Simulated scan of single mutants.
Amino acid sequence: MNSFSGARLRTPEEIALNAGADFARLLPPQPGQVFAGRAVRMRQLAAGHAMRDYLLLMAVICEAQHEQLATYPAVALPSREQAGAAATAGQPLLHTASWPRDPVWREEWRALLGRVLNKLPEDSPARPSVEALRVLPDDALERQADRLLAGIGLGVDLAAAPLIAAGLQLHWTHLVSATAAAQPGAFGMTDDATRCPCCGSLPTASITRIGGEQEGYRYLHCALCSAQWHMVRVKCTHCQGTGGIQYQALQALADAAASGEREAVQAETCDVCSHYLKIVHMGKDLHVEPVADDLATLTLDLLVSDAGFTRHGINFLLLFGDEDAADAAPPDPDRGPR
């Protein structure tokens, strides 16, 4: 593992901010790219990976999400008055705890599962689970959705969670992108910089971007709606402190020696609050995607977890344990997905 420590120096990003640099603090999800790009990255990472079958299954789900999002029906969007009230209160406009889920999400979710089934081979071991979920009663589905969105692990069907979460991701990605298109500037930064300013969810990872006005800036990537919001580098994504920040990375792994892809993913740990979140670097691998790369580096979670750090964030495509979903220790990737 690699680590960074020493005197706290201002990053070029912070210097630019203090100089009044103008750049986008919030990047809404791009409907035509988010799930398609994630699916491509899943397939790329699956090659030779210990979790190959699971990554390929998630790629199928992401491909189905991309197709379903293109035909998602119109749903009620927030008014300008609601946007103003949320901004005044410093709260996410489409907070999962307060914004009502349109019942259409259940119909779209079942249609999503139909697309997944159409893409799966007839002999796929995942088919029976997907087929069984399609007839899950509405009240049971809503209970599972409530637990997932609240970060409650107790009572969550872990096998069904990625598929149910896929429907919730689809719904909130549509909500956020449609609102951003209809009301430019509807979303502002909120009082809690550690959670998504659009829907209030935790991030999956952060990403340092390249190109244009975003060059060198770090953004947190929402686990639910895929919006990205700015947070300066070398700053804890949990306690927002700047002391005791270190970076841990995998080294000397046989499956990484040739490609060097693992260098693009690090765990940013905080010695003050003992939390961590992964950070992916486009400058080291142009094709990194926060959700896919997080999923493909569970070994890194194991290492930092064993060192006593708790994850700040969540990946809805793989949940585990009976604890709070946001705080559970990662599973052993050698055992495969549960």
Rank of each mutant, 00 (worst) to 15 (best):
T179R: 04
G167W: 00
L202Q: 14
V156W: 08
T190H: 05
D139V: 14
A160C: 04
G188C: 05
S177V: 02
L175V: 04
D138E: 14
D191H: 12
A161D: 06
R143G: 10
A150Y: 09
D191V: 13
P197H: 00
V130Q: 01
L141Q: 08
L163K: 10
T194H: 09
A165M: 13
R134A: 15
A178I: 04
F187Q: 04
F187I: 12
C199A: 09
Q169D: 06
A205V: 06
H171E: 04
L175K: 03
C198W: 01
L170Q: 05
D192G: 02
D192L: 12
T194K: 08
L170A: 02
P203T: 08
P162L: 02
G153P: 12
G200H: 02
F187D: 05
I152E: 15
G167M: 03
V156T: 09
Q144F: 07
S206E: 13
A159K: 11
H171R: 08
A180E: 04
E142P: 03
T190V: 15
G188K: 09
T179V: 07
A145W: 09
C199Y: 01
L148F: 06
T208S: 08
H174F: 11
S177D: 11
L136I: 11
A132K: 13
T204Q: 05
L154C: 05
A159D: 12
P137F: 11
A205P: 03
A193W: 01
A132Q: 14
Q144H: 12
Q169W: 05
T208V: 15
C196P: 10
T173S: 03
A181C: 07
G167Q: 00
I164L: 02
P137K: 07
D191Q: 15
F187M: 06
A140Q: 15
L163F: 13
D146F: 01
R143A: 15
Q183C: 08
V156A: 00
T208G: 03
A193H: 11
A165W: 12
G188P: 02
L202D: 07
A145S: 15
C196A: 13
G153M: 11
L148Q: 04
A178R: 12
